[in-house]
Nucleic acid binder design. Structure first.
Length: 586
RNA sequence: GCCAACGUAGCUCAGAUGGUAGAGCAGCUCAUUCGUAAUGAGCGGGUCGCAGGUUCGAUUCCUGUCGUUGGCUCCA
């Protein structure tokens, strides 16, 4: 049952035992829960009254260092289950007893180092001396067995490496990640803000953030049109009855915002699908017009518990690049497949690597199991046909259907669900959707819900971290900074800036009376891709001095040369729409 | 929602065993007109998250509350 663990995993696992030993020695009455290896480190969950402080972590580290220095051998032993249970009860370790009871083996495995013994399957390094490079990072709460109904334990996180150099490098990576944090860059680049004054989880896009979003919207709008989608627009609220029919009122109620109009109950839309369905339903449909594909950048509001909001990545109001397909069963696999391609095209454009998950039927669901099985099968088939590697996420589907999720990583490696493709046999039934088949009889269409970015908020947050705020030319909110060396060339600078603007580029002219070095620094900190430096020389020769954010000074050249260069970088790779010009500001 | 920490000027942070606060950057004004990552001088700016309590007096202590951060749980 054990998989081959890497040397590093063994070190980390032993580190967690050393920490448990140190804490057991320093604090009385500690109850041990679990202490596994995780990416880059380990944690261990403890139950004790005293709340760990920063100072405690340093003390624990010091004690751990002593255990390492003692060079204790780490020895495995097996005990018959009954004996093991008695032993753990005698140690007064209720969580360990519970774990042991759940293990279906005759013999239970223990590991001992010095005076410390822990129920554990291993594997470990053979001596505590091997755990030399470690650091305890943080303490947080965690429910026993991950359930809110259980006791809240204290989880201590640590990182451990083979060498001190590796540890050092990892700690530096963490510092670097902090600099890419989209919440920090959001302020530094003046992209957006979220304020408790106006409500947590509600985003205000500043001009540059709105421009970024505009470019993303333009790209996606074009992509959707290219893929045969039709735009639709729906109201932001609807009678509650709509959501009673859809099942949201029952299954999604704790996320919904309610209001009243004319003493009638209304709902602020938490999802766009019921309204898109109303458009489908607005008249009779023929099989000849299927698949019907609607899309909309639909803003939804969902209640998120106070502790879960996170910058742009988890908010209460967000806009999905939402689409709904109404099709026949025969068309289903093709529609899923083409959306997998859309996701791939989009992720490639931005250089995202991504992970794909197939999320299956959850505990709370609507509809018949046969439909669920068919839907899950259709998704798996499309994945197989596209050759996309994926993992199964059991029970993670939405209440109305299973889905394919694509997860993106933020600067710290935390994963966030972005693109999603969901099959739905249930809403068409609940809303009694129909189309006239070639047999002149009524049939029920299948629905696909899908979003390629997921939401603009989350995708933008991930993008900011991905590029560390230095967006590619076609995407950057300000593409060109025009920097006159002195007021004497201000006229020429205005002329050049105006020319770029008329070509559809997003330009900022720095007319301040700072020295050129300061202007360059300013534009650099704002991560503007190109700077155009203009002085007397350039004016006289009717040239531009071009500077690239990363490559530095590129020297003097003619306007045409510069325009050619901009044109080549001015549109996203791999798409024919979206000229630089179509993105222009007013 | 739960556990823990935190909340001082627009930003980053300092500070007083309780006697109503400072720095750098940013901003504004003036001087400077400058060649590839910071020109100089001056000025303005905070009811120290909010509400109670203790106290002669609280931003500092206590309680509550709102929010943030890191996790847990939950999800685009």
């Amino acid at each position: 049952m054990k998989t081959a663990a890497s040397e590093l995993d063994r070190i980390r696992h032993t580190a967690s035992h050393i920490m448990a030993q140190a804490i057991s020695e320093l604090f009385s009455d500690v109850k041990l829960a679990i202490g596994p290896t995780i990416e880059n480190g380990f944690y261990y969950d403890f139950d004790l009254k005293h709340a760990f402080t920063e100072d405690d972590l340093r003390r624990i580290e010091a004690r751990m260092a002593e255990i390492v220095a003692a060079k204790l051998p780490v020895v495995q032993s097996l005990r018959p289950k009954a004996e093991a249970l008695a032993y753990l009860k005698q140690l007064n370790q209720p969580y360990k007893v519970e774990i042991a009871e759940g293990i279906n083996e005759d013999q239970l495995s223990f590991f001992t180092q010095g005076s410390f013994t822990d129920l554990c399957g291993g594997p470990h390094v053979d001596n505590t001396e091997r755990v030399m490079a470690f650091k305890l990072l943080k303490v947080s709460g965690a429910y026993w067995r991950g359930s809110e109904k259980n006791a809240m334990l204290q989880r201590v996180y640590g990182t451990a490496w083979s060498t001190h150099e590796d540890l050092q490098r990892h700690l530096e990576t963490l510092v670097e990640a902090e600099k890419r944090d989209h919440r920090r860059l959001g302020v530094e680049l003046d992209l957006f803000h979220i304020s408790d004054e106006t409500g947590p989880g509600l985003v205000f896009y500043h001009p540059k953030g709105a421009m970024l979003r505009h470019v993303l919207e333009t790209y996606m709008y074009d992509q959707q049109l290219r893929r045969g989608y039709q735009p639709v627009i729906i109201p932001h609220m609807a009678r509650q009855k709509l959501y009673e029919t859809s099942g949201h009122n029952e299954f999604y109620r704790d996320k919904m915002f309610f209001t009243q109009l004319d003493e009638q109950p209304y709902v602020i839309k938490p999802m766009n699908c019921p309204s898109h369905i109303m458009i489908y339903k607005s008249r009779r449909r023929s099989y000849r017009e299927l698949p019907v594909r609607y899309f909309e950048f639909g803003t939804v509001y969902r209640y998120e518990r106070s502790g879960v909001m996170h910058g742009l990545l988890r908010v209460r109001g967000f806009t999905q690049d939402d689409g709904h397909i109404f099709c026949t069963l025969d068309q289903l696999a093709g529609e899923i497949l083409s959306n997998l391609q859309a996701v791939d095209e989009t992720m490639r454009l931005f250089g995202f690597t991504y992970e794909v998950y197939l999320s299956t039927r959850p505990e709370k669901y609507v509809g018949q199991i046969e439909n669920w099985d068919r839907a899950e099968q259709a998704l798996a088939e499309a994945l197989a046909r596209s050759g996309t590697p994926y993992q199964v996420d059991p029970g993670e589907g939405v209440f109305y259907g299973p889905k394919i999720d694509v997860k993106l990583k933020d600067a710290l490696g935390r994963v966030w669900q972005g693109p999603t493709i969901q099959v739905d046999f249930n809403l068409p039934q609940l809303f009694e959707l129909e189309y006239v088949g070639s047999d002149s009889k009524m049939h029920t269409p299948v629905m696909v819900h899908r979003a390629i970015f997921g939401s603009f908020e989350r995708f933008l947050g991930a993008l900011i971290e991905h590029y560390a705020g230095a967006f590619p030319f076609w995407l950057a909110p300000v593409q060109i900074a025009v920097l006159p060396i002195s007021d004497t060339v201000l006229g020429y600078a205005e002329q050049v800036a105006g020319l770029f603007r008329s070509q559809g580029y997003r330009v900022e002219l720095d007319a301040s009376d700072e020295k050129i070095g300061a202007k360059i620094r300013q534009a650099t900190l704002q991560k503007i891709p190109y700077m155009v430096v203009l002085g007397k020389r350039e004016q006289e020769q009717q040239q531009l001095s071009l500077r690239h954010l990363k490559e530095g000074d590129l020297g003097s050249m003619t306007l045409d040369t510069v325009l050619e260069r901009f044109a080549a970088e001015g549109k996203p790779q791999g798409t024919q729409s979206l000229k630089g010009g179509s993105l222009s500001q007013k």
